[in-house]
Design a binder for these strands. Structure first.
Length: 589
RNA sequence: CGGGGCGUAGCGCAGCCUGGUAGCGCAUCUGCUUUGGGAGCAGAGGGCCGGGGGUUCGAAUCCCUCCGCCCCGACCA
């Protein structure tokens, strides 16, 4: 049992001005955390207690499938050079030199170290599979830390790594994590969804994110209420309803039309009296690709042009994956002139000569699936103040690749069942990922298979953001007065508020009740501060504790109040009824 | 990195435009009263006005520069 009068719980009546999202405000106001720098926070008593509870859940579930390690937080550059990530990680990695001038980095993830252990120690298929995990601080020099603990430069991550002999075995390791993660997030009291995720340009076959819906989130999730389909916007697809095609004019071939000043999609659509869905949107990029020039790898910028329906938007994550680009930027005027011979606003597909494969150097044209089987569309003529009509994809222009390259939009048909999709913001709390041999191959991890043949084990990696579980929970459970956490991750299960400690009998009764609850297995905070009742009620509402017991004047009738923070419901109970009532209440939470 | 904003007491802010040596609310400390939803009265303490440079008789205020923090976009637990 802890006595509030002896603790350091610096609550704030007002939120600091630079706190924007609910969890950030409340973490500060409740005295859970204090900020040291951009994306760098100290966890105080209450925050640390909550984090410890989250870690305990994670550890317990992970121990059912894997073995806990603790790897170094600082490491030499060599292993990162071997995996090729010393350069590809770029600015996100904190780098430093030791006194001898040797380069080191702070750990932002631990594939390299785990693989280093694996390659030095694993010799036989008989040692596989392995699942190794750790709960450890990660350092990432985020370009933009924000939203309190949601996006920071130092955070605690549970990261695990599996080593398997073959794909079937990796499936098992992956599925074990899937189940463990579901257990963890369920026990943490989060409303979450598992979604299909983008695997990134780094390769890897399958990837799933665990998301919690909240407006503070940075991701967009498309989901279907009727069949359960859910995917990150980076990956989501949809069914489109048919578009009524325009009637062809003249001989039905592309016809040049004078469209002075009609540069925007909406203007063009209005001019032709068509829906934007019948206009072809042109988006021109330069894409940075790592290219093997024969003498080492080099970044080259190549033109990539996307054509899609006028009412659709390019999904740059999908695009980067398709053309294997590390970076995209819009073409500048000079480049537009070079590849289109026309100005922005009047760009179009007719007359371009795309290369045949995305691996070929030269102009790559990606057409969105929404253009498949369409006809008689409008599109820029690559000439100032002119558009074509009667443009039929496939007949009047060709492409390097026909692919899903657009963002799905709210209301479009679910790819599985056709029901309207919903799009909502969410925060990522976990990610599971099949890596394949990306690291084991480059770093030289090999084992002998049953036939005595040397093979490369394949890996999976799996992460959980510890603080994000806390943050997401606060985002899901707050009101004007503060927040409430599920008992499993709250710093205390119950706060016993003695309304007036100058009444010695009240304090004695409160202390006795607190001790009894503690003995029954609850984590109890006794609010024995010399404050007015109102102050203590306000603080209790603020700091995330799910239950409160008020010990006040009703003690004269042998009664106390049990207040459930989430519902704000209060019941008067005989002291003897309190414990059983609390047991019931905390189980239904 | 691009765009926007902000740095004045622990927290929230005013003062800056139009230079004259810093103020309000909350918090803190003392005393009395009060004691179930952030109490009342009386008194007190607390500031290199983010750092450096410049203009000026004089700078929180004007100019230059650096630093920090927040928000919006490209990245991820």
């Amino acid at each position: 049992m802890h006595r509030w009068s002896k603790l350091f719980v610096p609550t704030l009546r007002e939120a600091p001005a630079d706190a924007e999202v609910a969890s950030h405000k409340f973490l500060l106001r409740s005295g859970y955390v204090r900020q040291l720098g951009a994306g760098i926070y100290s966890y105080l008593f209450m925050g640390q207690r909550s984090i410890n509870k989250i870690i305990a859940i994670v550890r317990e579930e992970m121990n059912t499938i894997g073995q806990e390690f603790l790897l170094p937080g600082i490491m030499p550059s060599e292993i990162w050079e071997q995996s090729g990530r010393w350069t590809s990680m770029g600015q996100n990695m904190f780098r430093l030199q030791d006194r001898k001038g040797a380069w080191l980095c702070l750990g932002m993830t631990h594939e390299e170290v785990m693989t280093d252990i694996a390659r030095k120690e694993l010799r036989s298929y008989k040692q596989l599979p392995q699942i190794w995990y750790q709960i450890q601080t990660k350092y990432r020099d985020e370009p933009r830390p924000k939203a309190g603990l949601l996006r920071v430069r130092q955070f605690i991550m549970k990261d695990s790594y599996s080593f398997d002999l073959d794909a079937a075995s990796l499936d098992e390791s992956y599925n074990k994590h899937d189940q463990a993660y579901r257990n963890i997030f369920t026990r943490s009291g989060l409303q979450f969804v598992a979604v299909e995720a983008d695997s990134g340009a780094m390769g890897g076959s399958q990837s799933q994110e665990f998301m919690v819906y909240t407006d503070a989130g940075e991701d967009l999730i498309a989901s279907c209420a009727s069949c359960g389909y859910a995917a990150n916007m980076e990956k989501a697809t949809s069914r489109l309803s048919a578009v009524t095609e325009m009637e062809p004019t003249g001989d039905g071939l592309p016809e040049l039309v004078h469209t002075p000043g009609k540069a925007a999609i909406a203007d063009v659509a209005e001019f032709f009296q068509i829906s934007p869905a019948s206009d072809i949107k042109t988006v021109a990029y330069m894409a940075a690709r790592l290219s093997d020039t024969g003498k080492g790898k080099e970044t080259v910028w190549e033109p990539v042009v996307v054509f899609l329906r006028g009412d659709h938007f390019v999904n740059e994550t999908k695009l980067m994956g398709l053309v294997k680009a590390g970076e995209l930027r819009p073409m500048n005027g000079e480049e537009l002139e070079k590849y289109f011979h026309g100005p922005a606003g009047y760009l179009g597909p007719v007359g371009l000569t795309p290369v045949k494969s995305v691996n070929e150097p030269g102009l790559k044209v990606i057409a969105d699936l929404g253009l498949e089987n369409r006809k008689n569309m409008a599109g820029g003529a690559n000439k100032l103040d002119y558009h074509f009509r009667n443009v039929t994809p496939g007949r009047d222009f060709s492409w390097t690749l026909l692919a899903d390259i657009r963002n799905v939009a709210e209301g479009e048909g679910c790819p599985e069942c056709g029901s309207p999709l919903k799009v909502a913001k969410a925060v990522e709390v976990g990610h599971i990922f099949k890596l394949g041999d990306r690291y084991t191959e480059s770093m030289g991890a090999r084992v002998l298979d049953p036939n005595g043949k040397e093979v490369t084990p394949i890996m999976g990696c799996y992460g959980i953001g510890i603080e994000r579980i806390l943050t997401a929970s606060i985002e899901q459970n707050n009101d004007a007065n503060g927040f409430w956490l599920p008992r499993a991750i709250a710093p205390f299960d119950v706060v016993v508020t003695v309304t007036n400690i100058s009444d010695a009998s009240l304090l004695a009764a409160g202390t006795e009740i607190a001790e009894k609850l503690e003995a029954a297995g609850f984590d109890v905070l006794l609010d024995d501060r010399d404050e007015r009742a109102g102050v203590k009620f306000k603080d209790a509402d603020l700091v995330g504790i799910p239950f409160r017991v008020n010990v006040g004047k009703k003690i004269a009738e042998g009664k106390v109040e049990l207040v459930t923070r989430a519902s704000a419901l209060s019941v008067d109970l005989e002291i003897a009824e309190l414990l059983p009532a609390l047991v019931v209440a905390s189980e239904t939470k």
